[in-house]
Every structure is written in structure tokens, then in C-alpha cells.
Amino acid sequence: MTLAACATLGSLPLSIYPDFSWLSALVETATGWFGLAIIFAYSFLIAFALPGVSEIVLAAPLNLGLPRSVVLGIIILVSGVGKAAGSVFAFYLGRETKESGVVDRLLEKLPVDVMGWSERKTVEIAQRWGYAGLAAALCVPGFPDTLSIYAFSILEDDYVKFAAATFVGSCGRLVVTVVGLTAVGFVI
């Protein structure tokens, strides 16, 4: 199976996905300690199935009775663990899909190279940087996580290193987002 085939799983047009706006709204209104379970579930799902970006978890008004900086740290860790767990599931799906060849056959029928450029860049990063490249790719705010996760799942074969890289990248992405938003004067 090509990387384009797996990457396409996570980057299909939003119109083919069911409407998950209710889930984003749930995250944005999550309060209390139960809100952490919502953040974990959202992060788990966004790693392999949901369209969109993971930064939305930073908007959760958890109200845990702790300073906001501590709450942000907790959100980042919970989201990172959720995305690492979801990435392991995506890793498994990617490996199984690679062996089945179903997506390859579907993509071969398309008149254009849907993911050619992304595939080349992802392969280049993976071959040059390995798991560190995956972590770095996941640190880019706004970039769809599923593209990198599925693409790397084809090239790599160590579940633990894969989960660790997605944890580091996911936490890094949220830290970069917090620092960036704070630098421009946005209060989180």
C-alpha cells in the first residue's frame, strides 16, 4: 500500500464525514474533572478518525480549582496520552490496511494523484528523521494529525516508539499553540 493510500484515510473531504461539530462543542464546554475524560476521548478520536485539529482542547473551561497554567498542563498531558493511544489504534489500522490493499485499489481508480506531494514530503521526513520526524510533524499547529499518523504507520513498525513520538508531538503542538497565542496577546 502506498503512503498516499493511508494518508488519504485521514484527509478525505469533510463533506464525507458525519457532522462532529457537537463533539467540538462538547470539548469547548467541558467542565470539571469529567471534562478531562472528554478531552481524552476527543484526542483519541482525532488521532485516527475525526477531521479537524486537536488544538480545540485548549479551549476547554475545566474549572478544576487550580491555576490556569496548571490546568493547561493537565489538558496538554491528557490530550497527549489520548492522542498517543489513538495513534496506536491508527498504527494498527494502517498496518492492516497496508496488508489488505483495499485503499490502493480505490485510489488507483482516481484520475489524479490525490496525495502525491504529501506522500513525497512525508516519506522524506520519515526516511530522514524517523520517529523524531513524526514528533516534529505533529508539532505543527493546524496540520491534520491523521495524515502524519497514517503515513508514518506504513513506514515504521515499533508501537512503543510510535506512541512515544505521537505523545511528544501532540504535547509539543499544544505547547507551541499556547506559546504562540500568548505571544500575540491572546489570553488562554
Rank of each mutant, 00 (worst) to 15 (best):
A136Q: 01
F143E: 08
P111T: 13
F91Y: 03
V88R: 03
V78H: 10
V81E: 10
F89Q: 09
P141L: 15
I75D: 07
T122S: 08
G73V: 00
E99Q: 15
F89D: 01
G101Q: 00
L110W: 08
W117Q: 06
A126G: 11
A84N: 04
W117G: 05
E119R: 00
L93E: 04
T146I: 01
Y92E: 05
I125M: 08
D104P: 02
A135I: 05
S100C: 07
I75E: 09
Y92G: 04
A126E: 07
E119V: 03
K83A: 14
S100Q: 06
W129T: 02
K83I: 08
Q127T: 14
S100R: 12
G142H: 14
V78F: 08
I125P: 01
Y92T: 03
E108G: 13
Y92C: 12
G142F: 15
L77K: 09
V78C: 07
V123C: 11
P144G: 01
S100H: 06
G130L: 13
G82V: 08
P141K: 15
D145R: 09
L110H: 06
Y92H: 09
V112S: 05
L106V: 10
G101C: 08
L93F: 12
V114E: 00
G130P: 03
A136R: 03
L134Y: 02
G130R: 09
T146Q: 10
I149C: 10
V112N: 02
I75T: 11
E96S: 09
